[in-house]
Simulated scan of single mutants.
Amino acid sequence: MAISQAVLATVFGILGNIISFFVCLAPIPTFVRIYKRKSSEGYQSIPYVISLFSAMLWMYYAMIKKDAMMLITINSFAFVIQIVYISLYFFYAPKKEKTLTVKFVLFVDVLGFGAIFVLTYFLVHANKRVHVLGYICMVFALSVFVAPLGIIRKVIKTKSAEFMPFGLSFFLTLSAVMWFFYGLLLKDMNIALPNVLGFIFGVLQMILFLIYKKPGTKVLEPPGIKLQDISEHVVDVVRLSTMVCNSQMRTLVPQDSADMEATIDIDEKIRGDIEKIKDDKEAFLISKN
């Protein structure tokens, strides 16, 4: 008995939802840390703002398309969880970061999405609306999928994969496969095409991880830079699929050689000062006796 394309699409959509659901929860340890320390600790809100925009955009597309329920379910969850993340971040962030967060939300999620909604809903004919909106979603997804090039370049340059988690790359690649077949079975290239790029970059990241992984070594974290920087979130924003939330996994940023040399010089100076103090103390005790 042959299985219909609709049934297969539903199966791949459910699998994509399951994987994307758990990856959407990946930032929870970050926010537990923020909650315990009552501080945003230098983390950035931009990735969550972009993820919220992505969820809104793909929900709108799925509602106009009408036969992509799997997109609505995961993006509805992504929409809610990103609002929770942004709210928690806003509550514990310093005043300057709160102001920036409000500006990003207004500019990207309110004005950006609002402009797309007005243009496509009121100025585009109903028969062409889904196609125009689909192109917008695809261009947005493709532009974000290019982000891993920065991480890949850094891995090759530093010959270290310590800041590129293998597990994250694996699940993002697996997610891209699920959503690719979901879009393919729906004959929707707006969903399928960006995930081809996501699969390629995901496999490339895993290969680079295996090549440059150095067991037992750590990449030092430079002062003032947290584990989660801009690249981390833009790398994985919308990488779960063409529509899902970003993975918000924290990445390590390696120090460059100049920083390392400066750190070594400081350490040597401190050691020298300690030795001098010890010598002075011993000389004082000898003279006293």
Rank of each mutant, 00 (worst) to 15 (best):
E261T: 00
Q248T: 12
E232Q: 13
V49E: 10
A26Q: 06
S143V: 13
G183C: 03
G112C: 10
P254D: 06
P27L: 14
H131S: 00
G16Q: 04
P223V: 04
V144R: 06
G202A: 06
C137E: 01
V108K: 04
L174Y: 03
W179Q: 02
L227T: 15
D67E: 05
L71K: 00
N127P: 01
Y182T: 04
K98G: 02
D188Y: 02
F122T: 14
D273W: 15
I50N: 11
I270C: 10
K128A: 05
V196N: 06
V124Q: 03
I152K: 00
D229R: 11
M178C: 10
L123D: 02
L52P: 12
G42T: 12
F31H: 04
S169D: 07
V124E: 00
V49R: 01
T173W: 03
G202L: 06
L240I: 10
A6V: 12
I151M: 13
K103P: 10
P165H: 02
L210F: 08
Y135E: 08
F117G: 09
G224D: 10
A55Q: 06
F113D: 08
D265R: 15
F91N: 12
Q82N: 15
D188Q: 09
P215I: 12
F284R: 00
M1A: 14
P27N: 12
E221S: 15
V237M: 09
G134C: 03
T120Q: 07
I266H: 14
Y135L: 14
P94Q: 08
E221A: 15
K214P: 05
I152S: 04
C137I: 02
F53G: 05
F31M: 01
K213A: 13
P94A: 07
V11T: 06
I136M: 09
A176I: 03
L168R: 04
P165A: 00
L184I: 03
S76Y: 02
F53I: 07
L185Y: 06
F91Q: 10
F77Q: 09
D256C: 03
D259Y: 09
F171E: 11
I50W: 02
A93L: 03
V235A: 14
K213C: 13
V146R: 08
L204F: 05
C245P: 07
H125M: 01
A176C: 10
D236C: 09
S51N: 10
K159M: 08
K98A: 01
S175F: 01
V132L: 06
Y43V: 13
S76M: 11
M1I: 15
F180V: 03
V237I: 13
I3F: 13
L197S: 08
L149K: 00
L123V: 09
L123A: 10
L119F: 15
K154C: 01
V203D: 05
A147L: 09
R129D: 14
A2G: 13
A161M: 07
Q255P: 09
A258T: 05
G13A: 05
A176G: 09
A62W: 07
V102H: 01
A283M: 11
G13I: 04
M1C: 13
M69L: 07
S169N: 08
L57E: 01
I14Y: 00
F170I: 07
F79R: 00
